[in-house]
Design a protein around this nucleic acid. Structure first.
Lengths: 130, 130
DNA sequence: GCAAGTGTATTAACACTCTTAATACGGTTA
DNA sequence: TAACCGTATTAAGAGTGTTAATACACTTGC
């Protein structure tokens, strides 16, 4: 479910946060679904439970998961999360476009990339999407 | 010339590298122009010279600057640097487009952003560009 | 030549963060 | 009650970033 990358300079707990966020955004971990327990995930990844605990604590602080004592941690309603990520991404897109302009990459080239990738996605997914 | 951001979690020497790279990419620091000396930049930023030295050593390792002992450090030919950055950026653009698709952002929305930003840039810069 | 400026190198010490380890406690469930 | 859950605490270690103090070789201008 989660794979650590020891070449990644970020601390383990941050990698765990990112990976779980991604799984939640992709819907692999659906709303109200239980996350692996602190201890079991720690065992899987061969790391200390405290490190997982730290990741979960941060995910809860961000509102991405919720916890029931004695039962476990669960995926929170993720619509907010999706909206947050959308906003961040739009900013990021704006930034990369700016840099592309500065580096002299043509608008056409970007437009084509967008067309191609969206085209491929449609072919792949058959054009559903809420 | 360089401003440190102590809220930034990255180490100082990395921030210095990024800022100088940016200045070189933007042409603010032109080819063969001298960079501030290790000691003077350290004094300006109120940090230890060793930290600047580390940044300069890394910039030289990357081929972005060259050093003449006793004289100083200078901006290297930056065409290679520009090409490297272009390649990186194209990958990055591809990645954000992918995520935009996954999050259900429409291709039209992206296209419009590109149009608007490129339009604004033309108006601003009057359409030159090699 | 000398002084003042360059970059470079080395060593020690300190601070901070990440991670582990060992425990303990309270809640839930079968 | 036993075996799971999350949570909390304390201590120790390792690694990295940063500072500090120094020293050396080179260049430039007086």
């Amino acid at each position: 479910m989660v794979i650590l990358d020891y070449k990644d300079r970020r601390p383990i707990y941050e990698q765990v946060i990112s990976k779980l966020e991604e799984l939640m955004l992709l819907g692999v971990l659906a709303e109200n679904e239980p996350l692996p327990s602190v201890r079991s995930l720690a065992t899987d990844l061969a790391i200390n439970p405290n490190t997982i605990q730290r990741a979960y604590a941060e995910l809860e602080r961000r509102g991405y998961i919720y916890t029931v004592k004695g039962k476990g941690s669960f995926v929170a309603a993720n619509s907010t999360m999706k909206e947050n990520r959308k906003k961040e991404l739009l900013i990021q897109i704006s930034e990369v476009i700016d840099e592309a302009i500065r580096l002299g990459i043509s608008g056409d080239e970007i437009q084509k990339m967008v067309e191609i990738q969206y085209g491929a996605a449609e072919k792949r997914d058959g054009g559903e999407e809420t």
